[in-house]
Measured scan of single mutants.
Amino acid sequence: PDLGLTQLFADPNLIENLKKNPKTSEMMKDPQLVAKLIGYKQNPQAIGQDLFTDPRLMTIMATLMGVDL
């Protein structure tokens, strides 16, 4: 199971919303991170391994779920 990750990354406004959010806007200036996020739309399971190697993803996930870290 993808634990709902498919829906989190399926939002067509995902990148724009993250660019507008004060907690994630600075991160979204990294083209490699943006490319990763776009890739998760097609393969949400890929985030599982990346969560352990890129701490920014935890902040992004929390933001998408509405959790304040």
Results as ranks from 00 to 15, higher is better:
T6Y: 10
Q32R: 10
P1L: 12
D68M: 02
P1K: 03
N17M: 11
M27G: 01
Q49D: 11
L5A: 07
N13P: 02
D2I: 15
G4D: 15
L18R: 00
E16H: 09
L18T: 00
M65Q: 08
Q42F: 09
S25W: 05
D54G: 01
A46F: 10
E16S: 08
M27W: 09
Q32V: 13
I15E: 02
M61E: 01
Q32T: 12
K19F: 08
Q42A: 12
G39W: 15
L37D: 00
G39S: 14
P12H: 06
M28G: 00
K19Q: 13
P12F: 04
T63G: 03
L3H: 13
L18S: 00
A35K: 11
P55A: 11
T6D: 11
Q7Y: 07
E26N: 09
A62C: 10
P55G: 07
I38A: 10
L14Q: 03
L51E: 04
Q32K: 12
M27L: 13
R56V: 06
L33N: 01
F52T: 08
L14T: 06
I38C: 07
P31F: 04
E16T: 08
E16K: 07
K20H: 10
F9V: 03
K36E: 03
A10R: 12
L18D: 00
P55L: 07
A46E: 11
A46G: 10
M61G: 02
P22A: 08
V67T: 12
L8I: 13
M58N: 06
N17E: 09
V67S: 13
T63H: 10
L3T: 11
K19H: 07
L64P: 00
G48R: 15
E16C: 08
P22Q: 05
T53Y: 08
M28W: 01
L18H: 00
L69W: 03
T63Y: 15
L14P: 01
V34G: 01
D54C: 03
I38G: 05
K20N: 13
Y40M: 07
L69I: 15
Q42W: 06
V67H: 14
L33R: 00
L37R: 00
N43G: 05
S25K: 10
A62I: 11
T53N: 12
I38E: 13
A10W: 09
D68T: 02
A35P: 00
L57Q: 01
D2E: 13
L37T: 00
A62V: 11
N43D: 10
G39L: 12
A62D: 07
T24V: 06
P1G: 12
Q7I: 12
N21A: 04
D50M: 04
K19G: 04
I15G: 01
N21L: 04
L5V: 10
K29W: 04
D50W: 02
G39E: 14
P55K: 09
D2T: 14
L51D: 04
K29T: 11
M61L: 14
G48H: 15
K20C: 07
L8V: 10
T53H: 10
P1A: 11
D50K: 03
P44M: 08
D68N: 05
D2Y: 03
A62R: 08
M61I: 15
T63W: 11
L14N: 03
N17W: 14
A35I: 09
R56W: 06
G66D: 11
G66Y: 07
L57T: 02
T59I: 13
K29F: 04
L18P: 00
K23E: 07
V34T: 04
K19C: 07
I47P: 04
D30H: 02
T53D: 13
G48I: 15
L51N: 04
P44T: 06
D11T: 04
T24N: 01
N17P: 01
L51R: 05
M58W: 15
V67Y: 13
L3W: 15
K23M: 11
S25D: 03
L57A: 02
M61Q: 02
L57C: 03
P12N: 07
P44F: 06
G4S: 15
G39Q: 13
G39R: 13
I47C: 05
G39V: 11
A35Q: 12
I47S: 05
I38P: 00
D30E: 03
L69Y: 03
L3E: 14
G39K: 15
D2Q: 15
K23N: 11
N43R: 05
L5I: 13
D11M: 04
A46P: 05
D54H: 02
L64C: 03
N13V: 03
M58G: 05
D50P: 02
I47G: 05
D68F: 02
F9Q: 01
Q45M: 13
L33E: 00
P44L: 09
F52M: 13
A35G: 06
M58L: 14
M65R: 10
M28P: 00
Q7D: 10
D54E: 05
N21S: 06
Q45T: 12
G4H: 12
T53Q: 12
E26Q: 09
K36R: 11
P22W: 05
L51S: 07
P22S: 07
K19P: 00
